[in-house]
Nucleic acid binder design. Sequence first.
DNA 1: CGTTAAGCACACAGGGCGGTATACATAACA
DNA 2: TGTTATGTATACCGCCCTGTGTGCTTAACG
Lengths: 196, 196
Amino acid sequence: MTELEKGPTGRRRGRGARERILSTAQQLFREQGINRTGMNELCAAAEVSKRTAYQHFGGKDELVAEYLRGFDPSVLSGVFDRTDLTPRERLLAAFDIPPTTPLCPYIGAAVELHDPQHPASQYARDYKKAVAARLADTAREAGAADPEQLGEQLALLIDGAAARTRVLDADAFPTAAAIAAVLIDNAIPASVGGDR
Amino acid sequence: MTELEKGPTGRRRGRGARERILSTAQQLFREQGINRTGMNELCAAAEVSKRTAYQHFGGKDELVAEYLRGFDPSVLSGVFDRTDLTPRERLLAAFDIPPTTPLCPYIGAAVELHDPQHPASQYARDYKKAVAARLADTAREAGAADPEQLGEQLALLIDGAAARTRVLDADAFPTAAAIAAVLIDNAIPASVGGDR
DNA sequence: CGTTAAGCACACAGGGCGGTATACATAACA
DNA sequence: TGTTATGTATACCGCCCTGTGTGCTTAACG
């Protein structure tokens, strides 16, 4: 989602500041956190004038909100849209997190901002609910007895793995995946959609 | 753990500034977060001179570490020590979180500090490991096939509930408890120590 | 080409932060 | 009572933060 580096001649150094800012924000906010990343630092890293940054975004809060918005489509949709997997496999695939993903940015933002009213916190809630809903959809497709419940449970497992990975500095997703397997097997009557 | 307000005449060595600082820190750090609570504000709320605060704690980092230390014994030991419950009930009781507890402070600290080297982050890891270990002990007592695994799984559920409660602003512990019940029943062979 | 909007460089304001200095007050205990 | 450890009051320092003001450059496009 960030392949707009530059064309034949350095023609992209003038335009496209907004994209540079956002992609740099994604990197720095993840690596260092939101509060520990100053606008000066961010602008320098993005090779963008501070003035320009503030012409694109009314303030840091707005930038943070936009930064979180950037994840919506891409994070887990790749999993849910895989038609090569059975619904059950899709549910489990949600726990195959590439090690490049340090932590769900929504949890980090909610904790760092510490203000449920902040637009970014709203996005975080919306996103979490959306993920749970998509999990529930897939659970229904897989023939779960109570898809909503299973979706909520799996979402909780993902968040637990994310939080625990962060605190312990050790990958907790395998543990979550193991739990997920148990829950899924318990929730699907016999093998309605369990296997292809 | 903070019933040392004052005796007949402030009976102990001057006055308990240190205790006031720590109990105020617990309150403010929880309510507002660590980074959003300045030392000026904290000292004012604790009715303590800033000078005094810095005589007790070398700096804010040290205060934060000490603040986290204050939780160690009290948080979950009350659950594990309850002899009136079966081991299985004790495992489930860990999910009966009183609504006064907004979020595990260790997760918050780890996210806010964003530095695994920070002493407070170390405490956070140690605490999380200790909780998992005690859960594993209880799981063993309950006759679980793989106590370590079950302990780790239950710990993940607790963290997931904490994180999700924070982000969504809605209690997620009942969901976690439901998962825990499934896991426990699956992990204990038949009913070895399942009931009294 | 010329126009125009986008971007740039850079200094600076205003404020909050963690932390310190100085000078003084009082509780506890011998 | 006097000494000492503890706490108080307040001003202050240097730093970094978000955010602006001003004037200039240049890319993009008709």
